Simulated assay, not measured.
Amino acid sequence: MRHLRALCAIADAGSLHKAARQLGMSQPSLTTQLRRIENALGAELFSRERTGCRPTPLGRSVLSRARPLVSGMAALVTEARAAAGLADGPRLRIGSTASRALVGWLRRLRNRLPGTDISLHMDVSANALLRMLAAGQLDVAFVHEVEGCPLLVPEGLERRVLVEREPQFISMARDHPAACSPVVELADLAEDRWMVDPTVDGEWDGLLRVLGAAGLNPPVLHGDYLTAASLIAVGEAVAPCQPTSGPRDDMAIRPLRDDPLAVRLLLFSRPGAVGAGGRDEVFADLEASYREAALRAVDYRRWLTAHKSPLLHAPAA
């Protein structure tokens, strides 16, 4: 099963690097594992290309048999754990990509649902979280969808839209020349190195699309956003960031003119995993927590005010 999961992860991610991140292992280890599987079968299952990995005809055949087995095993484990945990009381399993709304959301849920075992699973890949949700490993998933890069949503999941279009701001060194402006032009960043995490679904493609549309072709570095923050602070790079990002003494966060970069914030759930009323309450707590994080971020609050956003006003009780 471990080998079959690895094959499915490589096919879904489209690259060994992304698949290794999703599986929690190093890329060399996954490459070695794939080589062993291919040696055992006597043929290549993936063709290695500059843009990633693509299943060969044999690979597609193997994957068509592997996916039902992996899904069935995941369902079996989930059902067994659920049966074993029935006596332990109610639980809520949350999956999420990174968000500054999470702290407030978990606090509200714990206050609303005393005695409920609430767990959190974080992943950079929204698609991976949706697969876990469909397999019964999560009850709800809070994810973002990069504009122009639709998520691969499994059938049967229920969706609520938290924010239809959240603008992505830019983080840069505090002494960057563009930091003195309240709104930054893309052209002002044409000579900068940009940094993006290619393991975040859609982020690489979304950034290239926006830069290309503006006629820009700056150098783009690949790396996680924790590393990016260190490079940004010393002026080595700029990077897209969530508008709810908190202030730092060594970093400036500014909106882009006309908001070319954006994501959609979505909450998915499995039918029956959370009751109809419970689903509404979970969403309401997320909405309140996001509003709290948004209004705490000074530049985002200014943006919301300028755009007369309904987020400025709490919904009626």
Rank of each mutant, 00 (worst) to 15 (best):
L133W: 09
L186S: 00
E164R: 14
L129N: 03
L207N: 02
R110A: 03
E155M: 14
M122Y: 08
T199D: 12
E203M: 15
V143H: 07
W204S: 10
L157S: 11
D123N: 12
L130M: 08
C149G: 03
C149F: 01
P114Y: 12
M195N: 05
W194Q: 04
Q168Y: 07
A190Y: 13
R160Y: 01
L157N: 12
V200D: 03
E191K: 11
A178L: 09
A179C: 06
G115S: 07
A135Y: 10
Q168N: 08
V183Q: 08
R110T: 02
E147C: 01
F142H: 05
Q137K: 06
A141L: 07
G104K: 05
D123W: 05
L102K: 09
S181I: 00
D175E: 15
A190T: 10
T116S: 01
R110L: 00
D188V: 01
L106Q: 14
R100F: 04
A190F: 09
M132V: 00
R193K: 11
D188R: 15
A128D: 15
V200Y: 06
L157G: 08
S99K: 03
R112E: 12
R174M: 12
R110H: 07
N127D: 15
I118E: 01
H176G: 05
N111G: 14
P114K: 11
M172S: 01
L120E: 05
V103L: 14
A178D: 01
M132F: 10
P150M: 06
V140S: 01
L189A: 01
A101I: 04
A134C: 09
E203L: 14
L138M: 07
G202N: 07
G104C: 06
D205G: 04
H176Y: 02
A190Q: 14
T116M: 11
Q168R: 12
L211M: 04
H144F: 08
V146D: 01
V210H: 10
F142I: 01
P198G: 03
E191I: 11
R108E: 10
P167M: 08
P198K: 08
R160S: 15
D205R: 15
I170Q: 00
V210T: 10
V200I: 14
N111W: 11
S99D: 07
A126M: 15
W204H: 12
L157Y: 03
S119L: 00
N127R: 11
A98G: 13
L189F: 08
A190K: 15
P154G: 11
E185W: 03
V184C: 07
D201F: 00
R209Q: 14
G136M: 06
P114V: 06
V196N: 03
R100M: 10
W105A: 10
R131L: 09
V140E: 02
A98F: 12
N127Y: 02
G202H: 06
L207K: 04
R160W: 04
M195G: 12
D192Q: 12
R160N: 14
E203W: 06
L133K: 06
R107H: 13
G156T: 09
L207R: 08
M172F: 05
L102V: 14
A128N: 13
P198V: 03
